[in-house]
Design a protein around this nucleic acid. Structure first.
Lengths: 229, 229
DNA sequence: TTAAAAAAATGATATTTATCATCTTTGAAA
DNA sequence: TTTCAAAGATGATAAATATCATTTTTTTAA
């Protein structure tokens, strides 16, 4: 369990920082961010920002996983991305001048830092490396989403599930995949019942192991074959 | 029919420039781009760049429409975007450091200018307005693609077709929508036969008129209602 | 102008996946 | 520990859409 006190998490001691967009900051830059940011503990299921509202800054994940999603016409969530430790979220709306097009909420207990819009944009203006990192990230995600769209349009639910499990495997790393069936269905883009049936098939075919709510991938090769490129 | 000679199209006389990312360039900047760019005439159906290859610069559409697409496992195209006059295409791969994740080819005869990678990146570094414009564009598209993914996952083909027609109506402006049924199906994410049947339904329901290959929207409100938000 | 190829259209059928109803299990709070 | 709500699971059925085969129309190029 995470420390629930709202104490300041120092960037210099942040285990996730090295793999983040702030990874190559010098000591001076790190302490500058440290001064400007605010830290907070989030309970599981807590919203971070909501589609339609205006952004006031960006969020940096120190600990925990966060789902980024939109809601369709009937309110059903479509999960676009699952962010993990080290990721900065909400920075797209910083540049678009539009309200958030997506919502974010925690999938587990999280420690999340906040950097105000002005401070963040200032960093972007003055720090070329950060700026290039951001532009690279925006571009990379744009490419990923083109593939996401294509998968949605052309792959069967079974293939998409295989694909999704591989992505989730990456995100969860050593840990087991830990999502409700509903969230998983909303990531794959299918009905919860269909997802549950397919998970059982995958288990029977020896691709995954199901430990109640947590999933373990035991044959990634077979999943890759199923998922396609 | 367009002039097929490979003569230089001047940015200062480019009708599309005002609505482009170069729209607010001063005279000096415009003439600089003019010197650095190369112009070419493209026939209908000609590829501009192909998924997997490495980018050498960006393309600026002076005249004509271009489809941006990926190919799924079985080679079927999924159209992600249709670019029109004034749009700069292929700049995402400029920042990602990766090969193109999408392909682009012309949907009709086009005049397209090319700006080399170095020149373009140099512009980005020195011109804050252009840079902000690019970042805004990247962010905006990211939001659009989140919605695209959600539509694919949650809307019926009928709803997606209505949505697609509205987008196409915007892109084609005064002109009638002019796409093969196959391209349209690859944009909506459905089988060509399904698309053809639905178009007939839409015609019967008074939402569109079909002039052989070209389509005209005659009841946008009804389409909007069908498409959802 | 004609011939051939490409695109569009139509019908029949199969398949996938969603939906609805119901039941069971799990986990959290009293 | 018991209780209750949420999550997970299962079965039956309906609906949407893809696929395949074939025909007609349009466009392109000889």
């Amino acid at each position: 369990m995470l420390d629930k006190s709202h104490k300041h998490v120092s960037c210099s001691s942040c285990g996730a920082r090295n793999s983040s967009l702030f990874g190559n900051f010098c000591d001076h830059e790190v302490s500058q961010v440290d001064e400007q940011k605010a830290c907070a503990f989030y309970k599981k299921g807590q919203p971070i920002f909501i589609e339609g509202s205006f952004p006031r800054g960006v969020f940096c994940l120190n600990q925990g996983k966060v789902k980024i999603f939109t809601r369709g016409d009937e309110g059903k969530e479509q999960i676009i991305h699952i962010a993990k430790e080290g990721e900065i979220i909400g920075f797209r709306a910083m540049f678009s001048g539009e309200p958030y097009k997506v919502s974010a909420s925690t999938l587990e207990e999280c420690n999340i830092c906040f950097i105000g819009k002005e401070d963040f944009l200032n960093m972007i203006d003055t720090n070329v490396t950060l700026r290039n990192g951001i532009m690279k990230e925006l571009s990379k995600e744009l490419g990923d989403r083109a593939i996401f769209i294509t998968n949605m349009a052309q792959k069967s639910v079974r293939e998409r599930l295989a694909f999704a499990l591989l992505i989730l495997g990456d995100i969860y790393g050593d840990e087991q995949i830990n999502l409700t069936r509903e969230d998983m269905a909303n990531f794959v883009g299918t009905a919860t019942e269909t997802l549950i049936r397919l998970l059982k098939d995958f288990k029977d075919e020896g691709m995954i192991e199901i430990h109640t709510r947590k999933l373990e991938i035991i044959n990634a090769d077979k999943l890759m074959q199923l998922a396609g490129r």
